[in-house]
């Protein structure tokens, strides 16, 4: 399956979901749905978040599974946390506008 685009190729703004399709009966749903924050991360970052949850949030276990050192894994987590915070700041005004 193609990689999910998260940024507009023309103006670099965040993209929203416009159409959803059922994989079985091809029913299509149209609307304007905000892309969830986690889906705005890069695929490898999403994978990291999922693995981190599966390890019950244990960095030591993550480091052992990924065969990387503890600080390398912790730094990767810190980078993703930083990115999530940035995305939250970008998404906040959109959420406020929708609520009003």
């Amino acid at each position: 399956m193609s990689r999910l685009p998260i940024q507009c190729p023309a103006c670099r703004e965040q993209l929203n979901v416009n159409k959803l399709t059922c994989g079985k009966c091809q029913t299509q749903v149209e609307g304007l749905y905000e892309l969830p924050l986690l889906l705005r991360l890069e695929p490898d970052e999403q994978r990291f978040v999922l693995d981190f949850l599966k390890c019950s949030g244990s960095l030591k276990e993550m480091a052992a599974l990924m065969k990387l050192s503890y600080p390398t894994v912790r730094n990767r987590l810190d980078d993703i946390i930083g990115k999530i915070k940035q995305l939250e700041q970008v998404m906040m005004p959109e959420t406020k506008e929708q609520n009003s």
Binding site: K67, L68, S69, Y70, P71, T72
Partner: peptide, 10 residues
């Protein structure tokens, strides 16, 4: 090498 090894291991 600290990508792979750090802390007590190093």
């Amino acid at each position: 090498p600290f990508t792979y090894i750090a802390g007590w291991q190093a």
